[in-house]
């Protein structure tokens, strides 16, 4: 359980990060909270020659409300999200999800940007980002670009981030009035990845569903955008029949990998159950 040797870099400015990435290419890995990368390196499943630590880059920290968006620096930790009054007020879903990630110590180190950009279908933020219709700011040698969450997750450990790019910020449109949201996660224990989880954001108007987005965790090669499931809710009162239909449509897109958490059938069924659970909770929270 000892990492292979590597060279360590801890630049304090973003351009220096990008320059290092450019210089070392495939041989470099970005280090954020370290709770995905370092265990992989200790197991020697990963052995980068260069590790670029982002901890000193002050511009990657911070939470702000700007232009109707909550903007979160990519190096913001899970506990910073949980303890943030701003996030609690405007995007309580993020607090609910962050509380269900890993364990307290990991949440002091683990970052939202690391969780998203790793491209691990077992991570929780990707599905939440899909449900919140978030966008990600990516910076590279060619400048900045903004990618929608819906376009970001391409495959297992595969994202729209180009080589040489760094995720700098997460932008979440503040949900409007009439919105309710929930993250329902089934896991075996604290610290586990989801057997299945669902993030739901609902907007109700005059008793019917005006908008809905659903993201699913760990039941496919990436976090899944359950678009059809969400569409099926539009115009309904999100009653039990509508909830069941949405769950069925969500289950239809699941392609989970069997492991000790369960087989494909169980995980798919649990994705449906978590969608139902999250929808009921979200509906109860509409205000």
């Amino acid at each position: 359980m000892i990492p292979r040797p590597f060279e360590y870099h801890a630049p304090s400015a973003l351009p220096d990060v990008i320059a290092l990435l450019d210089k070392y290419g495939d041989e470099a890995k970005l280090l954020a909270g370290g709770h995905s990368l370092l265990p992989m390196m200790k197991l020697r499943f990963a052995g980068p020659a260069h590790v670029i630590d982002l901890r000193k880059v002050a511009s990657l920290k911070g939470i702000a409300l700007e232009g109707g968006e909550i903007r979160i620096g990519a190096m913001t930790t899970e506990n910073e999200l949980i303890f943030s009054a701003l996030v609690a007020e405007h995007v309580p879903l993020l607090v609910e999800a962050a509380r269900q990630i890993a364990d307290p110590q990991v949440r002091y180190k683990g970052t939202i940007g690391g969780d998203i950009s790793h491209g691990d279908p077992g991570n929780d933020h990707p599905a939440v980002m899909l449900a919140l219709d978030a966008a990600f700011v990516l910076a590279g040698a060619g400048g900045e670009r903004v990618v929608q969450a819906a376009d970001f997750f391409l495959g297992t450990f595969e994202t729209a981030m180009a080589p040489g790019e760094v995720m700098t910020q997460i932008r979440i449109p503040v949900p409007g009035p009439g919105t309710g949201a929930a993250y329902a996660k089934l896991k075996r224990k604290t610290g586990d990845y989801a057997t299945a989880a669902a993030a739901v954001v609902l907007r109700m108007k005059d008793g019917t569903c005006a908008a809905a987005r659903i993201g699913l965790t760990n039941v496919g090669p990436t976090a899944l955008n359950a678009h059809d499931a969400a569409q099926a809710l539009l115009g309904t009162a999100v009653d039990e029949a509508a909830i069941a239909q949405a769950a069925a449509k969500a289950m239809a897109i699941c392609e989970p990998a069997a492991d000790l958490r369960g087989d494909e059938e169980y995980k798919t069924a649990m994705a449906g159950q978590m969608v139902e659970r999250a929808l009921r909770l979200a509906l109860s929270r509409v205000k």
């Binding site: 364990d103 075996r188 224990k189 586990d192 990845y193």
Partner: peptide, 27 residues
Amino acid sequence: GQELPYDEQGNVLGGTLMDYFLPTSQE
């Protein structure tokens, strides 16, 4: 929760604390 199952090839499954169930204060 505890078990150490094997696959048909004789690979032992669940040999880390990610899988092997040691309950926390929460569970």
